[in-house]
Design a binder for these strands. Sequence first.
DNA 1: TCGTTTTTAGGTCATTTGTCCTAATTCGTC
DNA 2: GACGAATTAGGACAAATGACCTAAAAACGA
Lengths: 194, 194
Amino acid sequence: MNASATRDSIVTAADELFYTRGFEATSFADVAAVVGISRGNFYYHFKTKDAILDAVITRRMKSRDDMLRSWVDCGQSPKDSIGKFIRILLMNNEKIRAYGCPIGTLFTELSKRDHPGEPAARALFDLFRQWLRHRFEDLGCGADADQLAMHVLARSQGVATLANAYPDEPFLETEVAQMLAWLDAIAAQHAQTP
Amino acid sequence: MNASATRDSIVTAADELFYTRGFEATSFADVAAVVGISRGNFYYHFKTKDAILDAVITRRMKSRDDMLRSWVDCGQSPKDSIGKFIRILLMNNEKIRAYGCPIGTLFTELSKRDHPGEPAARALFDLFRQWLRHRFEDLGCGADADQLAMHVLARSQGVATLANAYPDEPFLETEVAQMLAWLDAIAAQHAQTP
DNA sequence: TCGTTTTTAGGTCATTTGTCCTAATTCGTC
DNA sequence: GACGAATTAGGACAAATGACCTAAAAACGA
């Protein structure tokens, strides 16, 4: 098989395992088993576990960046863009209930261990934060834009955590509806005072 | 030393280490070193790592339960009680910035590994949830009480996570102020429609 | 075919949990 | 104080696991 194809399937498998089982709990052997290659081959592509983590974070970064860009490029209103972000929680409903937020849980794990990959994991938060801030600026929120961005991020994180703790309850849907209502209010408020 | 005193200091040390480093990352040797006892003595008190985890969760449960009860017993209004809960985030400011929420991060870690201690960790959430629900009921929120309780829990979790990711920003204080303002609005709303 | 790339099989080394043992020390009780 | 029970120290050791490494084989392209 092509080397970059093998490398890619390793990163794909690692991404999934880091999400569902956690970074530390996932071993070389686990990833190799999913991909169907030997541990030695694994080492051929990635010298250290941190190198795989880097690749996984880079992959997530690109994936999220592409997603966010597509929402802006398709030309919808800033409010609808932010609404789409909030609705990610609904889109990934089952996975969030089962494993929490892939960004949040990874950061929390790396932070607790003072892992060198922590800044890279924080950069994933930054990506969403900047994007949200720009959308709120487009909405006319000016100086409040960053604070609003952080607010949306925090509530999303909280909802993901609690949905993970209480997966059998309709809590996630309720909270998303409330966040969308809150967004309506913010948008209305800044529409009349431009 | 008294056996229960030794046991207690083990649980205290484990509680702190599980919080600051995480459960999996903390080894028997780590805890024994902090307490200043031998590994042999350690095994005299706790046969397995899961047994220490149980003891730590029980301890946290009792500590939080005592705290919540004291807030009700001192006879302040339900609104002020809920306010005190929200202000936990301020009280534990530095620790939350450094290590996140002790309840949330423990649950997330155990959940991700399908650890048998997961239900016990969820019970900690339940404790806060029930208490908040009762306070909102006292406030006259009736059927909405549980949903409001979950809302407060979720926002607190989200704030803790983001404050952990951005420890150098005044974000935590800002969000607490907003939550307290939100609480004011809820209380006012139910004061005029009893 | 030849040389490079890719893959495999296997092993090393360190760490951690958990078990077990012995001897010393402390403690409660008489 | 004496005695037995509880507690502690300090280790040896097995089993498991995971990160990391090497060398030979296989696949592949020119």
